[in-house]
Design a protein around this nucleic acid. Structure first.
Lengths: 194, 194
DNA sequence: CCGCAAGTAAACAATTTGGTTTACTTATTT
DNA sequence: AAATAAGTAAACCAAATTGTTTACTTGCGG
């Protein structure tokens, strides 16, 4: 391993500390409400260092949104590759996993949606990061529905995205367990496209 | 009309000005990002007056959320009582109306969801106002599904709420026209409960 | 062992925030 | 015409905001 790699490893460590602390604080307390001073204290990093990696707070927010997406991707990969599942089963597993995430009471909604609520029309880079997140989410469903013998798999994927999004938003506000049978609803949605 | 009524009419005018300006600014720029000074300038009201009606900014936010709900209620009443519609048609009209609202490109998402994103775990009164909004939304669907000869009308109402919520969240982030046939999807959702 | 990149701590600047207070001006009603 | 409720304009406050800068320390590689 070359010096440069070691150096960038050190850099990445600090960067990671910052992004991780910021991610936690942003999800729990919101973006505007979280000051950079607190982030720097929680991440054990000096302000100078912070502003070397992230010249502005919004740069950090963009990085956090990408971190959020990557984390979700890893989680999905872990869940989906665990067993040998059919495409339909994979879709059901995604919803089952989401339902669990929504139910724990400390769920704070989709970070990309929250960011959009605070920065829509104000910071194009953040808006883009939010859109990238949702586009990626949609592509996950599209990959799966296209493996299914259904008509209009893209439409089906969009419906699934709508469903998971709606469940998340309601969970965020209501903090009540979801009263409906998700498996049944998802299966019905899929069956309709056969 | 007594003095007191006239007086409270004047009061209500100022109050309304404040709430209306705040509503606009909050929806367009977010809650934390909108300062009270701007609100007071836009509403043509002195700061003193503002703080007589709303001792804290959060009090104003709660009032704005209720204003938002009442406005939605009026809009729905106007749309639903215009013609003699069946319950199923009324549900379809709600989604049609929502789709139009989401499509105009200046849609900023559900204000209650956005507020939850910024104030969850911080201000109980605001949290309650958000939950009241969603509970009311659900009750609208429940009223309609209960007039339908379906099994489990409450579950159906919840599914419809999930659907409209998901469409809103996606519209807020993606700013693309909804690619799916909503009438078909809603009808399928209802038919499944027959 | 020296030099350099990476990092720290803390002071500093400029602005903005929510909120208070004071002195003054309208209107309306009786 | 006088009393009163409602409102205004603006100064003021303490705290917090993002962002900059300075002087100092650490640790690793050639």
């Amino acid at each position: 391993m070359s010096d440069q790699n070691q150096a960038s490893l050190r850099k990445d460590t600090k960067r990671r500390q910052i992004v991780l602390a910021a991610f936690k604080l942003f999800t729990e307390n919101g973006f505007y409400a979280t000051g950079v001073d607190l982030i720097m204290r929680q991440s054990q990093v000096s302000k100078r260092t912070m502003y070397i990696y992230f010249p502005t707070k919004n740069d950090l927010i963009v990085a956090v949104l990408e971190f959020y997406r990557a984390g979700y991707e890893n989680k999905l990969n872990a869940v989906l590759t665990r067993q040998d599942l059919s495409s339909r089963e994979k879709i059901l597993v995604i919803f089952d996993d989401a339902k669990n995430g929504f139910a724990n009471g400390h769920f704070h909604g989709c970070l990309a949606v929250n960011a959009m609520g605070e920065f829509a029309g104000k910071d194009p880079a953040i808006e883009t990061a939010c859109r990238v997140f949702k586009t990626w989410e949609l592509s996950i469903f599209e990959e799966l529905t296209k493996e299914l013998p259904v008509r209009h798999p893209q439409d089906l994927a969009f419906k699934l995205l709508v469903l998971i999004e709606g469940l998340g938003a309601i969970a965020q506000v209501m903090k009540q367990p979801c009263p409906i049978d998700l498996d049944q609803m998802v299966n019905a949605l899929i069956d309709e496209h056969y």
